[in-house]
Computed example of a mutant assay.
Amino acid sequence: MAQAFKRFVPLGDRILVQKLKAEAKSVGGILLPDTAKQEMNQAKVLALGPGRRNAKGEVIAMGTKVGDTVIIPRYGGTDIKLETEEYQIYRDEDIVGILTE
Rank of each mutant, 00 (worst) to 15 (best):
residue 1 M to K: 02
residue 1 M to H: 04
residue 1 M to I: 07
residue 1 M to G: 13
residue 2 A to Q: 10
residue 2 A to Y: 02
residue 2 A to S: 08
residue 5 F to D: 10
residue 5 F to A: 06
residue 6 K to I: 01
residue 6 K to V: 02
residue 6 K to A: 08
residue 8 F to K: 09
residue 10 P to M: 07
residue 10 P to V: 08
residue 10 P to T: 05
residue 13 D to I: 03
residue 13 D to V: 03
residue 14 R to T: 13
residue 14 R to Y: 04
residue 15 I to N: 06
residue 16 L to K: 08
residue 16 L to S: 09
residue 16 L to H: 07
residue 16 L to R: 10
residue 18 Q to V: 13
residue 18 Q to H: 06
residue 19 K to W: 00
residue 20 L to S: 11
residue 20 L to N: 14
residue 21 K to V: 15
residue 22 A to L: 02
residue 22 A to K: 12
residue 23 E to P: 04
residue 25 K to H: 13
residue 25 K to Q: 10
residue 26 S to V: 02
residue 26 S to P: 03
residue 27 V to F: 13
residue 27 V to D: 12
residue 31 L to Q: 06
residue 32 L to R: 11
residue 33 P to N: 10
residue 33 P to M: 01
residue 34 D to N: 09
residue 34 D to C: 00
residue 34 D to R: 11
residue 36 A to I: 01
residue 36 A to H: 02
residue 36 A to P: 00
residue 36 A to L: 13
residue 37 K to F: 03
residue 38 Q to W: 02
residue 38 Q to L: 13
residue 38 Q to D: 11
residue 38 Q to G: 12
residue 39 E to T: 13
residue 40 M to N: 15
residue 41 N to P: 00
residue 42 Q to E: 12
residue 46 L to N: 01
residue 47 A to M: 09
residue 48 L to V: 06
residue 48 L to Q: 05
residue 48 L to D: 03
residue 49 G to S: 03
residue 49 G to M: 05
residue 50 P to M: 01
residue 51 G to N: 05
residue 51 G to L: 03
residue 52 R to N: 10
residue 52 R to M: 08
residue 53 R to P: 00
residue 53 R to A: 06
residue 53 R to S: 09
residue 54 N to M: 04
residue 55 A to Q: 09
residue 55 A to Y: 03
residue 55 A to W: 02
residue 56 K to W: 05
residue 57 G to F: 06
residue 57 G to S: 10
residue 58 E to Q: 14
residue 60 I to Q: 14
residue 60 I to E: 15
residue 60 I to R: 13
residue 61 A to T: 11
residue 61 A to E: 14
residue 62 M to R: 11
residue 63 G to L: 03
residue 63 G to C: 06
residue 66 V to E: 13
residue 67 G to K: 09
residue 67 G to W: 06
residue 68 D to G: 05
residue 70 V to C: 09
residue 72 I to N: 07
residue 72 I to F: 07
residue 74 R to T: 11
residue 74 R to Q: 14
residue 77 G to N: 12
residue 78 T to N: 11
residue 78 T to A: 10
residue 79 D to H: 06
residue 79 D to V: 14
residue 80 I to M: 06
residue 82 L to M: 04
residue 83 E to T: 12
residue 83 E to I: 06
residue 85 E to P: 00
residue 85 E to D: 14
residue 85 E to A: 14
residue 86 E to S: 14
residue 87 Y to P: 04
residue 87 Y to G: 04
residue 87 Y to T: 02
residue 87 Y to M: 03
residue 87 Y to H: 05
residue 88 Q to G: 04
residue 88 Q to D: 04
residue 88 Q to V: 04
residue 89 I to M: 07
residue 92 D to G: 05
residue 92 D to S: 09
residue 92 D to N: 15
residue 93 E to K: 12
residue 94 D to A: 13
residue 95 I to T: 08
residue 95 I to M: 03
residue 97 G to P: 00
residue 97 G to N: 15
residue 97 G to E: 12
residue 98 I to N: 05
residue 100 T to C: 00
residue 100 T to D: 10
residue 100 T to P: 00
residue 101 E to I: 05
residue 101 E to S: 11
